[in-house]
């Protein structure tokens, strides 16, 4: 590599890396990339886990590494950052919109979805506090009767 790519360029590349379990949003949208910086000729990427036991964490690290190596980054260090802990407040607006379009209700401060991602109905009921991944819960819309997943607000 002749010249180091800018941090903005690298963020753009990372914004093209999909979340392994919810591929409609990128790792940048998910808010798990906390910092990207050059330390000398080494690129340091700080990554925070969503849930402490989420199996996607190791896949996310591998995907970051693959994406950046493909772009010619040779010296790369991934650092795990625990504090401050990940919060759904870090989901991007673009990511929230993409989740809803995909059929997953985005997190709401009130603690539950505000509308059905299928029909927009507001008469909703919780089926289970947990769902197919640690970050989601199961809900159902009483208007269209469709079940859907809700991205838990933490």
């Amino acid at each position: 590599m002749t010249e180091k790519p800018s941090v903005d360029q690298i963020r753009e590349w990372l914004d093209a890396v999909p979340d392994p379990e919810i591929p409609v949003i990128s790792l940048m949208d998910l808010g798990v990339i906390r910092d990207v910086a050059w330390e000398g000729d080494t690129l340091v990427v700080q990554v925070t886990p969503t849930y402490s036991g989420c199996p996607a964490t190791s896949v996310i690290n591998m995907d970051i590494e693959t994406a950046l190596r493909d772009r010619g980054i040779e010296k790369l260090e991934l650092r795990q950052q625990l504090s401050p802990p990940w919060t759904t407040d870090w989901l991007s607006e673009k990511g929230r919109a993409a989740l809803e379009k995909y059929g997953i209700a985005p997190p709401q401060p009130a603690g539950g979805p505000d509308r059905c991602p299928h029909c927009g109905g507001a008469d909703l009921e919780k089926l289970s506090q947990f769902g197919s991944t640690p970050c989601k819960a199961q809900w159902r819309c009483r208007d269209c009767l469709e079940p859907f997943e809700y991205f838990k607000c933490i």
């Binding site: 402490s52 036991g53 089926l127 947990f130 640690p134």
Partner: peptide
């Protein structure tokens, strides 16, 4: 099924905390 998923998720969180 919902309880199965909930228990498995709870166990997963606990194992994640164990790693830390």
């Amino acid at each position: 099924l919902e309880e199965d998923i909930a228990l498995a998720n709870t166990a997963l969180d606990l194992i994640g905390q164990t790693q830390m």
